[in-house]
């Protein structure tokens, strides 16, 4: 028998807007992997695709909505969560996923994240964390590690970053996980668990951004960052989330896992009939 067979189409082409491929993301970027993984999870969840909606904000991750062949909304910078709240409350039948980046969701949109998690709105939230603003060319953001070099921290980042899973968990998110795009099977399983739950669910996905972050921070290309994940990540669902910070240094660990899976009353607007 021969080796590979060349073809023109992919089995998940119906889940992506294949007429828009190739996508805009750079070689070595992890966003395509996270998108492919979520596309598979959407199907494998068994939820009808016609009732699944994806909402994104602005930035490289903001483009995810536009590549998924479901009802999809590419909104304004930071506002994906409140837009999604409107969709969900006006039509509770919808399974609404917010797919956006660390800058969009935790800097300009940070306040919306806090309050949506506090309320326990029924939203599935996936945050791609690549430690910088990629779309604008690699500036520091709310998850950039201390000391990291970006185009706006040429002398090293002076700000301590958010620990996203700790933030989410402290606000009462009912499902909290962190994976990397290298841990794609675990991520797939985690996405399925999240899609199967109700309430505010949060998955942080670490993904390489070689152009905006890796090359200027002693990590290298996308592939090098994947090897970095392979070396530095440990899976520990029982970890103390307060300590689960990410330094992205060659001598520091990154803790991964499905950390939180609890039940809490799901947000219902005041006065809604049972």
């Amino acid at each position: 028998m021969s080796g590979e067979i060349y073809v023109q189409a992919h089995p998940v082409d119906h889940l992506v807007r294949a007429d828009r491929l190739p996508h805009i993301w750079c070689p070595g970027c992890g966003l395509g992997s996270a998108t492919a993984c979520f596309a598979s999870a959407m199907v494998d969840s068994g939820l009808p695709l016609d009732k699944q909606v994806v909402v994104s904000g602005i930035g490289c991750t903001g483009r995810v909505a536009g590549y998924l062949n479901v009802d999809s909304f590419h909104t304004t910078h930071g506002r994906a969560i409140p837009f999604a709240i409107g969709l969900k409350l006006a039509n509770p039948e919808l399974q609404v996923t917010v797919f956006s980046g660390d800058g969009d969701m935790f800097a300009i949109g940070g306040n919306h994240f806090l309050h949506a998690a506090r309320r326990n709105v029924d939203l599935n939230v996936v945050c791609i964390n690549n430690f910088n603003y990629g779309m604008t060319g690699g500036q520091f953001g709310p998850t950039t590690p201390l000391g990291a070099r970006t185009t706006t921290t040429p002398h090293g980042n002076a700000e301590p970053p958010f620990n996203l899973v700790h933030v989410a968990s402290s606000l009462g998110a009912v499902f909290v996980a962190r994976w990397t795009v290298l841990h794609i099977r675990q991520l797939h399983r985690s996405m399925l668990r999240a899609l199967d739950k109700r309430g505010f669910r949060f998955i942080e996905v670490l993904a390489p951004c070689p152009v905006g972050f890796g090359k200027s921070n002693d990590i290298g290309e996308g592939l090098d960052e994947m090897w970095f994940y392979r070396r530095q990540c440990v899976i520990d669902p029982e970890t103390d989330l307060a300590q689960a910070t990410i330094e992205m240094k060659h001598d520091s660990r990154i803790v991964l896992g499905d950390f939180v899976d609890i039940e809490r009353p799901v947000f219902r607007p005041s006065g809604w009939e049972e």
Partner: peptide, 23 residues
């Protein structure tokens, strides 16, 4: 492409499909 001599080595685990950013 499939490496020489690995024609029957794939176990259909699906990892490449999930991780490929380009479909």
């Amino acid at each position: 492409v499939v490496a020489d001599g690995k024609e029957r080595a794939c176990v259909n685990c699906g990892f490449c499909r999930l991780i490929c950013p380009e479909f």
